[in-house]
Design a binder for these strands. Structure first.
Lengths: 238, 238
DNA sequence: CTTCATTAATTGACCGGTTAGTTAAAAGTG
DNA sequence: CACTTTTAACTAACCGGTCAATTAATGAAG
């Protein structure tokens, strides 16, 4: 903690965290096996308990790690210097790309949201404070700003966010189902790329007061932000 | 099976199934406890294994039960006799209402979609064949019909579905998070009612070629379909 | 209508395997 | 020395699943 001398420690710690994120995101809190995490981190099981109190603390730490990364990259986009409408589009696109690149993160968050219904005192609070609250607050002001300036449609700002992010979440959430229906694999590079474009163009059509302006902006943003090439970035170690 | 004599048996069976849906939807397959299911069904644990081979079979049966109900009610809406655009709006609205009324079902499905990433041979196939495939196929023809007739925007039909359903899913998925952020409870009657209206009006604005027409239609559908009064229908037995 | 055997539904007690978490000692490392 | 990591055994609890025994319904015979 104090000295930066023993970097080896921090390194293993983050290796454990990384493995934990993977394991938890694939199997859930209950389904995850501590031995599996230890093995994946190439570490003895006992070492998990050297760095973390128990399984749940490790889970919380994993969530916090995730939340931090998400908040950081998202806020960077939301604070860009361009019109509110364009920032909204970039926000949606970055959201899409993040889910694509880090499906484990997404899975973790969704599971935690579902888990919340249990009423348990859980780690959702961390995510809320550290990632979602500042993100939502910032997005709200942007949307309101855009509406006031007449660039965006005059609808509830929250609805814009739901529209922008909901389609993304739903696309990846339903992907396994859609694939099983035989209409091709929605996670294939070509399909993802097409969906990415379509989703953004649709958003341009739907949240802007002037549809033509929205379309132009969407095309510009798409040209400016290339899709992350790392498809299926979570290594398959099966 | 043959005779309708032993109704008591079927009754307990469905009581078990009901309890299983609840338990699985709240805790996932791994997190669910068979004793908890038995207790909730007011039944001895061994009886679960009298009716179902094992935990996983019970899980599959629960999924199938859910899938059946969903498919039935959804297809009824999709086969109504009105314009494609109106059917699309009614489809989205019914989707919203279903999630609202049966959040356990929704939770179960989402978990199963997440679980699918594990690669396990799981029960998602049941959901795909029994509920989603006919639903999507029907929705596709409706969307394409609407586009051809010029009533709907000329965008990818899949995108319309993502837009229509994604916002709903995301709203309820993010509800615990939003509540935690202190901006009021999104699951409160007033908030849900407002969201329901806003979401449908937004859809009217975004998927119709003529926004005015979409707005009129959305208002008409909203007036025709009252919100189910049963808010928080899953009893709290804590 | 009773009797009684047969079958279905239900139970309480129990078993064996799994898993989170512990311990203590030793060895590696800066 | 102080910190990190391994090893390997150990426990205590938990949990899915089984089984023999019990109770409730059914139906046929007297």
């Amino acid at each position: 903690m104090k000295k930066s001398s023993h970097q080896r420690a921090d390194q293993t710690r983050s290796r454990i965290l990384e493995a934990a994120i993977r394991e938890f995101s694939e199997h859930g809190l209950a389904g995850a096996r501590t031995v599996a995490i230890a093995q994946a981190a190439r570490v003895n099981k006992a070492l998990l308990y050297y760095y973390f109190r128990d399984k749940e603390a490790l889970y919380a730490a994993a969530l916090e790690e995730v939340a931090g990364k998400v908040a950081e990259s998202t806020l960077a986009v939301l604070d860009m210097t361009c019109s509110p409408g364009e920032r909204m589009l970039r926000f949606a696109l970055q959201h899409f790309d993040r889910i694509l690149a880090q499906q484990g993160f997404q899975s973790l968050m969704q599971q935690e949201m579902i888990r919340f219904r249990e009423g348990r005192n859980n780690a959702l609070r961390i995510l809320a404070k550290k990632a979602f609250e500042p993100m939502f607050r910032r997005a709200q002001t942007i949307a309101e700003e855009g509406i006031r300036s007449g660039e965006l449609c005059d609808v509830d700002w929250m609805q814009m966010i739901y529209a922008a992010l909901g389609a993304n979440v739903f696309y990846f959430l339903s992907a396994p189902m859609v694939r099983m229906m035989g209409n091709g694999d929605p996670l294939e590079l070509a399909a993802v790329s097409a969906r990415r474009r379509t989703a953004l163009e649709f958003l341009g059509q739907s949240i802007f007061a002037d549809r033509r302006h929205g379309a132009v902006l969407a095309r510009r943003v798409l040209a400016a932000v290339p899709m992350p090439d790392s498809l299926s970035p979570e290594k398959k170690t099966a």
